[in-house]
Design a protein around this nucleic acid. Structure first.
Lengths: 139, 139
DNA sequence: TACAATTAGTTTGAATATCAAATAATCATA
DNA sequence: TATGATTATTTGATATTCAAACTAATTGTA
């Protein structure tokens, strides 16, 4: 097996492990996968309009309307009017939504700790530096 | 920002980049996400019974029945009877399914190349070694 | 061997998820 | 002010998923 194949294999094994971990975490909450993703995006980037949120989620605005409807009904998010342009609604996390985001973030930190614990401190430094490069340039 | 937070951020940025790349690749095919995942698992591990496939997919056997129904209808997979235990059906990729798996694998290699191209050969070695450790021990 | 318990897979009914296309409201501008 | 573009919602159709009920086959055991 050449080095490219080897890396491909390790990368997708890693990705699949991450995916199933993420899904199992979401299943412990009262949120669906799409609701959880929306909360994560809103928590990370702050309030944004429907169209931007749809772009981040990679779905249509129609789908996003439904997702935000449910988040609003469950009191995780709310729509806010914008005076300057009344077509636009800014989606904002409520207190409860911010709480859910913080909890989710804590889960992420837990997984990172789990990962760090199998690495030497040198490898840890290497991993951060490599990921930074990839994130900045590869996608 | 401490090192743990920093790594958490880079890890999930990486994961999200990977996710959206994976989704956009699947959308260019005539397969749904769940069908594509099933094909990837069958292609990687070879034929397996419904229950095992369901386990790999992280869904119930009911859901898997429906997915395999569709794959069978589109001629990507078929059920094979097992003489020793007639409750069991082995799910196998057809020629067309193997073809789809090979194409998908090619996409994976392309992404890996893209990633490798931003790394030095030393970083490349480091990344493989670190991922191996994580995959073996962390999930 | 008979019968209960277990296992594998399917079916069903309900809630979600998603898209494309049609619609409504608003804005920008010619 | 009319026209075209933009933002979000609604609608109708299909896909996804689960839990629970169900069928068929196998295994354990009395």
């Amino acid at each position: 097996m050449d080095s490219l194949d080897e890396l491909t294999h390790e990368l997708f094994t890693f990705f699949n492990g991450f995916s199933s971990w993420e899904n199992s975490v979401i299943k412990t909450s009262e949120l669906s996968v799409s609701e959880a993703h929306a909360i994560e995006i809103l928590g990370t980037h702050g309030q944004m309009k429907m169209k931007t949120l749809a772009g981040h989620l990679g779905v249509t605005t129609g789908t996003t309307t439904v997702t935000v409807d449910r988040l609003e009904k469950k009191d995780y998010a709310r729509r806010e009017a914008v005076k300057e342009d009344r077509r636009i609604h800014l989606i904002t996390l409520t207190q409860k939504g911010q709480q859910a985001f913080a909890e989710h973030h804590q889960y992420h930190s837990n997984l990172t700790e789990q990962i760090v614990s199998v690495l030497s401190s040198e490898e840890n430094e290497q991993l951060i530096s490599i990921l930074k490069k990839i994130n900045a340039e590869a996608f």
